[in-house]
Computed example of a mutant assay.
Amino acid sequence: MADKDRIEGAAKNIGGKIKEGIGNLTGDEKLKAEGKADQIEGKAQNAFGGLKDTLKGK
């Protein structure tokens, strides 16, 4: 089973893409920036979960 950090990170990344897309459509620069930040955070969390899985030997 995948580490919960990988699952949460992937979800945060997708949510960030959605936020960024809505920001692009509405011209909301703040929402667009939040979406990009969520994507970065999600990717980092996903990578951390992958590292934990590797260390567990999965």
Rank of each mutant, 00 (worst) to 15 (best):
L31K: 08
D3T: 09
M1C: 12
G16K: 01
K36V: 15
K30Y: 11
L55H: 08
I18A: 02
T26W: 01
D53A: 07
L31A: 04
A2Y: 15
R6A: 12
D5K: 05
L51M: 15
L51N: 14
E34K: 08
L55A: 06
E20A: 05
G27D: 00
D28K: 06
L51C: 13
D53Q: 11
T54K: 15
K52N: 11
A44K: 04
D5R: 05
K43C: 10
E29K: 09
K19C: 03
I14D: 12
K36A: 12
E41S: 06
Q45F: 01
D38S: 05
D53K: 06
T54E: 15
G50P: 14
T54A: 09
E8P: 13
K32F: 01
G50C: 04
D3H: 11
K43H: 10
K36M: 14
E41P: 09
L25R: 01
D53G: 09
R6G: 14
K32W: 00
A47K: 04
G16S: 03
M1H: 15
E29T: 10
G50Q: 03
G23C: 02
I7M: 01
K30N: 13
T54P: 13
M1R: 14
D28L: 07
I7H: 02
G42E: 04
A33M: 11
G49S: 06
L31Q: 10
E41D: 13
G15V: 05
K43L: 06
K19L: 05
N13G: 10
D28H: 03
A33N: 12
R6P: 14
G42T: 01
A47F: 10
N46A: 06
A37W: 11
L55Y: 12
I18C: 04
G49A: 10
E41N: 08
K19E: 05
F48I: 10
I14M: 09
K12E: 13
E20T: 08
Q45N: 06
G9W: 02
T54R: 11
D3R: 03
I18N: 03
N24Y: 01
R6C: 12
F48Q: 07
G21Y: 00
G21W: 02
D38K: 06
L55F: 13
E34G: 10
E8F: 06
N46K: 00
N24S: 03
G23E: 02
E34L: 08
G9Y: 00
A33W: 07
K56D: 14
G42L: 02
K56M: 15
D38H: 03
I14F: 14
G27H: 00
E41A: 09
I7D: 08
I14L: 07
I14R: 10
K32E: 05
Q39R: 02
D53V: 12
R6S: 14
L25Q: 04
E41L: 00
K36Q: 14
D53S: 11
K56H: 13
G23K: 02
K12D: 15
G16R: 01
G23D: 02
K4A: 11
G15N: 06
I40Q: 10
I22D: 02
K43A: 11
G23P: 00
E41R: 00
I18M: 08
D53I: 08
A2L: 14
N46I: 03
K12V: 09
K58V: 11
A44E: 08
G49N: 08
G42V: 00
G42C: 01
N13I: 05
D3A: 06
K52M: 11
L31W: 04
A10P: 12
